[in-house]
Amino acid sequence: MHPFAYERPGSLAEAIALLGRHGAEARLLAGGTDLIIRLRDGSLRPSVVIDLKRVEELRPAIREEDGRLSISATSVMTDIAADPRVRRHFVALAEAAAVIGSVQIRNRATLAGNICNASPAADTAPSLLVYGAVVVAAGPAGTRRIPIDEFFVRSGATTLQRDELVAAVELPLPARRIGAAHVRRTRRRGHDLASVTLTCGVDDAGVTRLAYGSVGPRPVLEVDESGTLADPGSTGEARAGVLERMFLGASPSPRSMRASPEYRVAMLRALGERALRMALDRLGGG
């Protein structure tokens, strides 16, 4: 690994000042499960690494406040997957957090790091999209809230500014009852990114939200407000038609080593149907 300086700010103000001072030369470090690999392979060569784990305001915490669940930037997948409130209100996020990497990876990997890394295959992204998560960005001008659908741009790029960092991810506590499920397809559990990662959520007003990743430059959210997918009386054909339209946003790369475009689209259909069934079951089962 090439040498770099290491900074360990104790406060958010200090972290933001360091980010401002070092600009493009700096990289933020959370769990390091993406960053350290890129430092080692030389694809990133910052002169300063700013570790967020001792920032008082960003300490690992999942808090319920003002009708939302706020997950701080250094909260790791192990804790998110086990949190009773996440499991109760946002089960598809708990499911996604629980299948990321291995125990060792989940003990380090943060939710904020997962979305900031902005891999199209990020497993938490579809659930965050379905639940309408909001990213709390902190910068020199204070904090602003970015709806998750406006956060992702393309592989490796988000709407976060260079002088900002993600302080927390907020999930509005659902006003309606919602059944949801996360499913994915990988070549080998614990050692590979998803070739398709997908979450489906259905609420008791009949609105179905479907989000999927790893089949294009960024994760995609589609909403069916017609009620066709949620209606137990809909024909298989009607459902397939709606799903097909929802998958038009998929544009898998023909150059991927992980899976061919044809395979990914076939898997998208199969997983979409499976997640919809699970979501409906869960909605029905209360």
Partner: peptide, 13 residues
């Protein structure tokens, strides 16, 4: 108390 891959952790951390 938690396992980590020590190849992905900086010593300073």
């Amino acid at each position: 108390g938690r396992t980590v891959d020590s190849c992905l952790v900086l010593a300073v951390e």
